Computed example of a mutant assay.
Amino acid sequence: MSGFDKTWLALREPADQAARHPGLVQVLARTLSALPDPRVLDIGCGTGSTWRSLARLMPGTTTWQLLDYDPLLLAEAERQIGPNPAVTFHRHDLNEIGTLPLTGTTMVTASALFDLCSEAFCKALTDRLVEAGCGLYAALNVDGAVSWSIPHPLDALMVDLFNRHQRTDKGFGPALGPDASGCLARLFDAQGYHVRIEPSPWHLDQASSALQMELLKGFRQPLLEVSDVPQATIDAWLAFRLAAIHEPESSCLLGHTDVLALPS
């Protein structure tokens, strides 16, 4: 799967960095610090946001392999990170789970990925990580909660329809959408892993108005695809929501959860 726009990824990166659950990041850092040669494989790396968020907080001996299928995003990640002997880049189709480069890897990381994936994908990946003895840090999986400080009567309907679209195929089978973190936790728990789920919501205000605008623009096509709500009604709701961004004290909450699964 590819097709994510680097402009969108740049817009969301500050919100993602602020949202990551600090307690799980601390546990991840302690876990890697206890290892003599910590190696991290970041899957679906995009432009390297996970590395930029975590690398400075992890032990200095950690090496990273950043993996994505999109060559343009990989090239942008390499450009932004620059020469770094601790970081390598690898192009790989995540649908080819059986050939993931896990040799020597102690932790797999991913951000904003698993809500796009199916249960079958998550099961196959879980089996591979368990076989390799790897842990998983899966951050920023949507949980379906979206709310605004300035309400509209159609908010609940539109969010429900959007979450319905979140469960359609995004390239890895029927997507889990808001059920992703729960699915990962269940799969790893069944394998005897220690699993924690913690909240990592976006809290967006006028300082993140550009991100809010792009987020809302991204609602339109999914809403048209999954409902028989008239286009005029959808456009009127979006016009209200876009205008409300600029109101004093306006804010938006978009829920995510982070998962950390560690071998026993």
Rank of each mutant, 00 (worst) to 15 (best):
E247Q: 14
G218I: 14
E247C: 07
Q26I: 10
Q221H: 12
N163M: 05
A190Q: 14
Q17M: 12
A185M: 08
L262K: 05
D42I: 05
P151E: 09
F188M: 01
R79K: 12
S208A: 15
L94F: 06
P178V: 04
F4L: 10
T88K: 00
E131T: 14
T105E: 06
K123G: 06
L35K: 08
S147I: 07
L54V: 15
A15C: 03
P230C: 07
W51Y: 15
P222H: 01
V229E: 11
A55D: 14
K123L: 14
V226Q: 01
H203L: 15
P22S: 03
A19Y: 06
R167F: 01
L67G: 08
D179E: 14
L24Q: 04
D179A: 13
Q212E: 15
S251H: 11
P201T: 03
A75F: 00
V195Y: 11
L224P: 06
D16F: 01
V27Q: 15
S111N: 11
I81V: 14
V25Y: 03
L57R: 15
W51R: 12
T50M: 09
D127H: 12
P248F: 09
L74D: 03
V108C: 00
T105W: 08
L140Q: 02
G173D: 05
K6H: 11
A110K: 07
Y193R: 02
E76V: 09
L262C: 01
R79V: 10
R220S: 11
P22M: 06
D179H: 09
L161S: 04
E131M: 11
M107S: 02
W51T: 15
G133Y: 09
L24H: 10
E119H: 12
K170P: 13
T168V: 05
L223S: 06
D16G: 11
L24G: 06
G144P: 06
G182K: 06
H90A: 10
D68G: 10
V159C: 08
A180V: 06
V146H: 03
A124Q: 12
A138M: 02
V142H: 10
T62N: 07
A175N: 09
A243G: 11
D258S: 03
L176G: 05
L67W: 03
A207S: 15
H256E: 06
A110Y: 03
T257L: 02
L254N: 04
D258I: 11
T105G: 02
W237Y: 15
V195W: 07
R164G: 13
P230Q: 05
F188G: 04
S181V: 00
L113T: 13
L260S: 07
L24C: 08
V226Y: 01
D258L: 04
L136F: 12
A190G: 12
P263L: 00
A77N: 07
R20C: 14
